[in-house]
């Protein structure tokens, strides 16, 4: 472990020495507008790109492995165009070379599109279907819950029936392996359920108030809140704690808070959540004090 710290400090020391260099670099006057490089370089780079497209890209692999004679022939044509481009490049006719490269690219794209199914695989379609279905189902559940809560009448019932009918039809279609049609029905159900929820809930404000079913639950919440504030100390006060007097004060509150938290954990371990909650609240308050003592006002 010690060895690691030594390395760490060495690296840090090095960094702090070297850090200003890139900073200065970044503060340079705005650079003059970039001038495009001579045509030759551009064509040369394109030549390399097109070579990769024809030889090593996934498109090239796909065409080579396809056994599709037409596509393979197209790729050969593309290669021929690239060879011409190379020759023009060598004889310094960059304009012509560039044109051949354009041809090679277009031909290769055609070849790739020939072997590609052009379609999404069946597994992916099924996967997508299932995702969308999960969304429809959970929104439908929400719609049911909300319509019960709001005691909404027949109209919503009718909408719900229509949505459920579409979902059922979609399922049947899926079983018949008509995945496209199944998806279409499902999408319609999705649009409908959105609109129905919007009609019921649009304009509402719901309040999730802090009510806990058990004291243990409240205790867990308080632990989270305590953790969050402990994290905030590191977040908010990192710079300020470099001042010793501030650091001392902050440390005092943090120590206080930590001991209260230990106390609370012991109380909770004995099952006395009520007292533990009160103690944790005091612990969190100490953290808030620590933050404020450094001059950062946070509510809490």
């Amino acid at each position: 472990m010690t060895r690691w710290f030594m390395i760490l400090f060495a690296v840090l020391a090095f960094l702090s020495v070297s850090a200003p260099v890139p900073k200065a670099f970044a503060e340079e006057e705005p650079k003059a507008p970039p001038v495009l490089k001579p045509k030759k370089a551009g064509v040369e780079s394109r030549l390399e790109n097109v070579k990769r497209l024809l030889e090593v890209s996934s498109g090239a692999d796909r065409v080579k492995a396809s056994g599709n004679a037409d596509a393979i022939a197209k790729r050969e044509e593309a290669i021929a165009a690239m060879v011409l481009a190379e020759e023009s490049f060598k004889s310094k006719d960059y304009k012509e070379s560039n044109e051949f490269l354009g041809q090679a690219t277009t031909l290769m794209f055609e070849a790739v599109r020939m072997v590609g199914t052009g379609n999404v695989s069946k597994e992916k379609k099924l996967d997508d279907y299932n995702r969308r279905a999960a969304s429809v189902n959970i929104l439908l559940e929400a719609l049911e819950r909300i319509s019960t809560e709001k005691k909404s009448g027949r109209e919503v019932e009718t909408q719900k029936d229509a949505i459920e009918a579409k979902v059922a039809l979609s399922k049947t279609l899926l079983e018949e392996e008509k995945i496209e049609e199944a998806r279409r029905e499902l999408d319609e159900a999705y649009e409908l359920v959105k609109v129905s929820i919007e009609e019921l809930r649009g304009g509402d404000t719901l309040i999730r108030s802090l009510e806990f079913a058990t004291k243990e639950e409240e205790y867990d919440y308080e632990i989270d809140r305590n953790d969050t504030h402990r994290m905030l100390i590191d977040v908010l006060l990192k710079e300020k704690r470099k001042t010793e007097s501030i650091d001392n004060m902050v440390s005092k509150f943090v120590t206080q808070s930590e001991s209260l938290r230990k106390e609370a954990e012991a109380q909770a371990a004995k099952g006395d959540y009520e007292t533990a909650i009160a103690t944790l609240d005091r612990s969190t308050k100490e953290l808030v004090r620590a933050i404020r003592s450094a001059g950062v006002y946070i509510p809490g």
């Binding site: 690691w4 850090a19 900073k23 670099f25």
Partner: peptide
Amino acid sequence: KHLIASSVLFGILSVWLVLSSP
């Protein structure tokens, strides 16, 4: 320990990078 030390180092490195590199 090695793992933790190297993650800490990496973390600090990243901070440094964010703060001072271009």
